[in-house]
Structure formats: structure tokens, C-alpha cells
Nucleic acid binder design. Structure first.
Lengths: 334, 334
DNA sequence: AGCGAATGTGTATACGTATTCATTGTATAC
DNA sequence: GTATACAATGAATACGTATACACATTCGCT
């Protein structure tokens, strides 16, 4: 394959200067309509596409966004990624994806300096990750999606995890539950924290106490939910409902319940968080707090684009409601 | 944030020319060890990283691979993507991800000319997609993973779908099944075709006929598997086993079986294909033909790197074995 | 008719790096 | 002691584009 044609080649073909070709490409109004038409025709005939690298070097804009994620195989994260890809591409932006579980932080640090991207999307911000710190320090426009950090001078778009969790808790006590299990994650960020605290607040407001033995703190995998359910449900007097902070854990809990012979929802209600597509599968039929993934991503990418256009604008934190999606894993007892 | 320092800035600091700094950066041997040490120290102090764009423009290499996928939310594809990310990043390569469901083909065509990437990874090649045709025509090194195209002059790494399917069929007939359901996809590529034909061949070799009414052709989503199972299992004399060509469909089939009250494996055996992580979940406990995802990706990326280094080398097609992973959705009846 | 403004185009340059070429200094060979 | 190879470095250039600037032409208005 020969070297791709350059704007200079086409300029010669069209009988104009390279500058004029460039003006046509950038929709510069200062070009005669006739000339423009002629150049466009030549461009089309040659099936020309500008060299993105040269353009980026000149303009300083790459039209590429760096996306940092974790655990792409987790259902919610996969849906989030899918949505990010859709929104970015519909905006004409490319996506470079990094999995921060695989990439050492040094790699990440390099990327920040390379000017490979116009901005960053971080979906897995944790208190102790240096990622957002480095990103912000580098001056690169950055938006936090799904997981936020309080008081951080950074655009953020998150679901209202606290409210969603509160509503889930209220829903349970409203339906007469008083012996409730809570399978929670170590608080590594706002998200897991609020999904825990909001739930506890709802129970506290209703005067329902959570027995310490009903609280299990676990890691993220499905197997951890499974184990937690076995632990909670194999007691002599198991809780009548279990709430957990992600769908993935909820799926594990449903599996664990099945393993110990507990029926859902007859013996135990189960509520998850994220409302992933899989929650609607018959195997799970999981009541879950919905995360407005599409709105989160759309809003976040918009904020990011605005910041790229104007780096000095004030930061915004957007919080979107998380309504409860009720399914068969909880059933009206009354 | 100030403009990042350039090699010229650092050259001044180190008291050398920009050319020497560049020589240090590229490990050019023609530089005095003393000078090199001094420059390296300055680079380190300044926390310098070369501008990737300028470097790429000069060398023609971006150290970035374009990955084209579909349906990231599908469990197997998510695992594949995760693996691709891991392997690429461990090789020092970046990944630009495109979802060809979102991106119109015109977009794709542009990318091919932009020289944004050194090569392509395609995981969803279909006979009629123009993607691989365009990619190859553009002269960009390209490798097909997971889905191949027969007789195509292109590096390819695929699982041995035919053999895996054959083994699944043989396993069923060896265990006495004679009334077997087949939930298949329209043949859009080698993968779905071989997963269908290999299975049929095993049954044919054993003298077991497949009733036409036992064959259901569906789309990719979970719901389609669900519907297929309901159709097959609500007949007066339903098949005693169902094989299907992806785990996602198998999950749908398990759900459908549950919906019509058919017990697995007591009433019906179910076999999927891909052996995703979820197949091991207790909800599914699915027997499935394993795809050696790690080996596929590792081999494929290696081929790609070799082709980038030497575009004229002969193309290779690697086929890796797909062993059957047996779980509770099939049980030894004897 | 004349003059400033507006329009269209070309020339030249810069983005930051890698690399060729020229140049200097130093070591080796005769 | 000179000629020559070689090592180390700097100066200059090119990658392909966008754009500031200069320039020529036309237009609008008195």
C-alpha cells in the first residue's frame, strides 16, 4: 500500500495551494464557493482523509478521550462502557480505554503527559487512587462518572446512591421487614459508602435496628455475595430480606440462597443496586435500584466537552435520581 | 497548567542539543555514556514524557491498536475485551475501542486512513461486513480474533468451534440422548456456522437424527434463548437435551426452562458455548464448550505485532482446541 | 474616479520529535 | 608525523497539517 495522499498532493491536483485545501477541510469561510467545490471533488475522488496525527499536533486537539475503568466483565461496568462508547462516538470522539487493574500507575502517569487525549473519563474513582489527583494535576479536563469524590474540584456525574439506598430500605420496612441483612462493600468511594449509609438511614428513620450479625462486608465478586448469603441464611433465624450494594453481589446472594435452600421471595427478599439488564432475567428477577446509566454518561460527556472548550469554567457535580425497579425477588406481602 | 516541556527545553537545561536528547530517548548507542547520564537526570527531574503525537508523526508508529467489537455487554465479549486490554497493555500498546454497532461504516473507513493506529483487532468479522475488507485494503496490519473468515488472506486466531461443537454432540449421544434440540444462530460467520455444523456432524456420525422441529434459529439476545426454550419444551414430547451456540443463549434457555417448569438436568440437559465466568455461577451451573480466550488473544496480538514489524510475512491462521467443561446442567445418567 | 474595506489565495512558518548530514575532536594505523 | 577511521555532537530538515501574514483583486461607497 502506497503512502496515503497528503493535503499537498491534493492541492497540486486541484491546482490550489495546500493552505486552501486545509481551509476547505476546516470549513474556513474564507474560501470561494467555486474553489471549495472543486477541492471537495478532488478530495472525494482521492478518498482522502486528513492525517489525524499531524492535525492533532497542530491544533493540540486529538478528538480522543481517555477512559479509565475497572472490571469490564462486571455487568454494570460493561453496560457503562457500552454507553460511554455510544455517546462518545455519536459526538465524533474516539475512546482510548485503559483498565486500571492491568495498567500500572506509572503507565497512567505517562499517558497524562503524552497529550494523547483531550480529556479523561474516570468511572472508578476511589479515595486512595491517585488517578484523579494526577489527572487533575496534569490540567487535563476530567470528569468522574458513576463514582464521585466529595469536595473534589472536578466535574462529576453520579447517581443519587444515598437516596436510592434510602428508598430501598424504606421499601423493605414499609413492607413489614424488621430483620434485614446488609451485604456491603468496604467504602472505597462515595458510591459504596452512600449505598450503605442511605440504607441504614432509612431503617433508622423507621426505628428498625440492624443487628450487627446481619451486616456482612465483602469484596466485589459474585462468589462473595454467594458466601455472604450462605452465612446469613444458614443461621437458625435468618433475616427476611437482604439488601446489597451491587447487582453482581445480589446475583451471588440469589445463588447462595438457592444453595442453602432458601426461597426468594418466600423466605427472603433480595434487593440489588444498578438495575443491570441481567436483573430482568428470569433466573434473577431482581428488584434493584436503577442507575440512569444513559443520563449519567450523556451528562458527563457533555460536561467534559464544555470543560475542554473552556477549562476555566466552574466545576459541576450532577446527581441523578435512582428509582427503585421492583421485580419478583421482592413480593408484596400484604 | 503550563505547556509541557519539550525535548528542546530539556536540551537547553542539559546543555546539549535537542538531537542528543532525542538520541537518549531512543536509546541511540551513539551518545557518550556521561552525556546520557546527565540528560537522563535532567529528564527525570523535569518529569518529562515525549509528546506521543510528534513522535508518531515522525516515526509513523503510534503504539496504538484499534479494536473493533460488538455487544460489549455480552458476557463473552466482555471477557474477550478484558483480555485484549490486558495483553495489549502488557505489551506497551494502547487500545482505541470502537463498537461497530454504534459507529457507522463511514466512520470506520475514515479511521482506516487516519493512521491513528498501527493495526487492527477485529473480533466480530462476518461474511458481509465490509470491515475486514476495508481494513485489509487499507494495508493496515489486521488480525481476526474469535471469528474468522475462510480463505481470507489475513492473520486469524479462532477456537476450534467445529471440534468443540462435535464433542458436545458426541457427549450427548454418548449419554443416550436421541431427541436433541439445537438452538442456533443465523450463520453470519465461521463461528456460528461451525458451532452448528460440528454438532450436527457428531449426531450424524452416531446415527442420531435431528428433527427439524427441534431446530430453532434465533438472534443473539438472552430473550431469544428464553423464547426458544419455551417453544421447544412446551411441546407434548420435548427434547431431552438442548445445545446452543453461545452461553448467553444458554442462559436464556435455562431461564425459559424454568419458566415452563422443566427441570435441568432432570428433564432436559443444556449445553452452551464459550464457558464464560457466569457459566460457573450456581444459577446456571452450565456445561459449556470452553473458549481459550487468553490463548486466543495472546496468540493474536503476537501475530499482529509480527505483522506490524514485517508486513510481508505470510498470513497465519491458528486454531485452538475448545474442550468441553462439564457442569450440573448435564448429569451422568448412567 | 478613488479609496478603504472585504474577499480570496498563496507563502511561510510552527507544532515536537527523529534522523540525515556536516563538523569537530580523538584514537588508531602506517 | 600525517592520514584515516571513528566517536560524539550540533545544525538542519522533514513528518502533514493549520494558520498568521502578505498580497492581489474586487466591491461598496462617496
Amino acid at each position: 500500500m502506497a503512502r496515503p495522499p497528503t493535503s499537498r498532493d491534493l492541492a497540486r491536483l486541484a491546482g490550489v495551494s495546500q493552505a486552501t485545501v486545509s481551509r476547505v477541510l476546516t470549513n474556513n469561510p474564507k474560501v470561494n464557493p467555486e474553489t471549495r467545490a472543486r477541492v471537495l471533488q478532488v478530495l472525494k475522488d482521492a478518498n482522502y482523509t486528513p492525517n489525524a496525527l499531524a492535525r492533532a499536533m497542530k491544533t493540540g486537539r486529538t478528538d480522543t478521550i481517555g477512559v479509565f475503568m475497572t472490571r469490564v466483565t462486571s455487568p454494570f461496568h460493561a453496560e457503562l462502557l457500552d454507553e460511554i462508547g455510544r455517546v462518545l462516538s455519536s459526538t465524533g470522539l474516539h475512546m482510548i480505554l485503559w483498565n486500571i487493574e492491568h495498567d500500572p500507575e506509572e503507565t497512567v502517569a505517562e499517558v497524562l503527559h503524552q497529550r494523547l487525549v483531550d480529556g479523561f473519563v474516570l468511572t472508578s474513582a476511589t479515595y486512595d487512587s491517585k488517578l484523579h489527583t494526577m489527572a487533575l494535576a496534569s490540567g487535563t479536563p476530567t470528569v468522574l462518572l458513576h463514582r464521585g469524590i466529595d469536595e473534589l474540584e472536578c466535574d462529576q456525574v453520579v447517581g443519587d446512591n444515598w437516596q436510592g439506598a434510602y428508598d430501598a430500605g424504606k421499601y423493605l420496612v414499609d413492607h413489614g421487614h424488621t430483620d434485614i441483612g446488609l451485604v456491603t462493600l468496604v467504602h472505597t468511594g462515595n458510591t459504596s459508602r452512600d449505598r450503605d449509609l442511605g440504607f441504614r438511614a432509612a431503617l433508622a428513620d423507621a426505628g428498625v435496628k440492624i443487628k450487627p450479625s446481619n451486616v456482612v462486608s465483602v469484596g466485589v465478586p459474585h462468589a462473595d455475595g454467594h458466601a455472604a448469603a450462605e452465612k446469613l441464611l444458614s443461621r437458625k433465624k435468618p433475616p427476611t430480606a437482604i439488601y446489597t450494594v451491587t447487582d453482581l453481589l445480589a446475583f451471588g446472594i440469589l445463588d447462595g440462597a438457592r444453595a442453602v435452600g432458601a426461597r426468594v421471595p418466600d423466605d427472603v427478599w433480595v434487593i440489588g443496586f444498578d438495575n443491570t439488564e441481567m436483573a430482568a432475567w428470569e433466573s434473577f428477577d431482581l428488584t434493584s435500584v436503577d442507575q440512569p446509566t444513559h443520563a449519567i454518561v450523556e451528562t458527563g460527556v457533555n460536561l467534559l466537552r464544555q470543560r475542554i472548550a473552556d477549562p476555566d469554567r466552574p466545576t459541576e457535580t450532577v446527581t441523578l435520581p435512582c428509582p427503585l425497579a421492583i421485580r419478583g425477588s421482592t413480593a408484596n406481602r400484604h
